[in-house]
């Protein structure tokens, strides 16, 4: 195993951004849930180490600080890959059909189509997540601005903002479940180490991501 040849899939910078998004998003979900009056009602603040959970002063600040990290990471991600013209994660024509073929082959029907650096379903999942994050970030920024003393926004506009923010939260939670759920499938296991070490097995790449492998050979 140790001698297996590896290939770099994610640079340290990309991994740093990914994990910044992970930690800030989990903190945001948690501190956001604690904006609802549930920590006190459900005795969560009685759990050692979680006494702060019912303190809105703490959870609001936590939400703001985690938002700072998320916004910074997303901004870095967008600008960095735009300048480098790296659009591997954007969907392509035929991705819906290709995703269907990949999933079908996982159940033993038909052969899996050759993939590029990312699988078709990963590209579709990326768009879903990007859209969800776009919604939550835009509405979150409006909510921050609305809290400032000099700003009063119309009630109808804020109703929409709040509802979209709450809806996008559930879209993201669903997305995370699907993202992690993908690793229940054995065929996807070789991809898992790449978000920790940055590397994947060369043999796996040759076999499954042959389009990417061909590009790397050029």
């Amino acid at each position: 195993m140790a001698n297996k040849e590896k290939i770099t899939r994610h640079s340290p910078l990309v991994r740093l951004i990914h994990w910044s998004v992970v930690f800030s998003t989990f903190t945001l979900i948690l501190s956001g849930m604690f904006q609802l009056p549930l920590a006190k009602r459900y005795f969560i603040d009685q759990i050692p180490g979680l006494t702060w959970s019912s303190n809105y002063r703490v959870t609001v600040m936590l939400h703001y600080i985690a938002a700072l990290v998320l916004l910074s990471a997303v901004s870095f991600h967008v600008v960095y890959h735009l300048i480098r013209k790296e659009f591997n994660l954007l969907p392509r024509k035929g991705d819906l059909r290709e995703s269907y073929l990949i999933i079908k082959s996982m159940f033993g029907f038909g052969e899996e189509p050759k993939s590029d650096k990312y699988l078709a379903e990963q590209r579709l999942a990326y768009v879903y997540m990007a859209f969800s994050f776009f919604l939550i970030i835009v509405t979150g920024i409006i909510k921050i601005i609305k809290n400032l003393p000099s700003v009063t926004l119309s009630d109808g506009f804020l109703d929409w903002t709040t509802n979209i923010h709450n809806l996008a939260t559930f879209m993201i939670i669903f997305g995370i479940i699907a993202h992690l759920g993908a690793f229940v499938i054995k065929a996807n296991w070789p991809l898992l180490p790449s978000m920790f070490t940055g590397k994947v097995d060369l043999e796996y790449v040759k076999h499954r991501h042959s389009k990417w492998y061909e590009k790397l050979q050029k």
Partner: peptide
């Protein structure tokens, strides 16, 4: 929270430059 609002809104501009 409002005291850190400016930082939250400006940080992504700084990271855009860093990117």
């Amino acid at each position: 929270a409002n005291g850190v609002a400016a930082a939250v809104l400006l940080a992504p501009v700084a990271t855009a430059f860093a990117a």
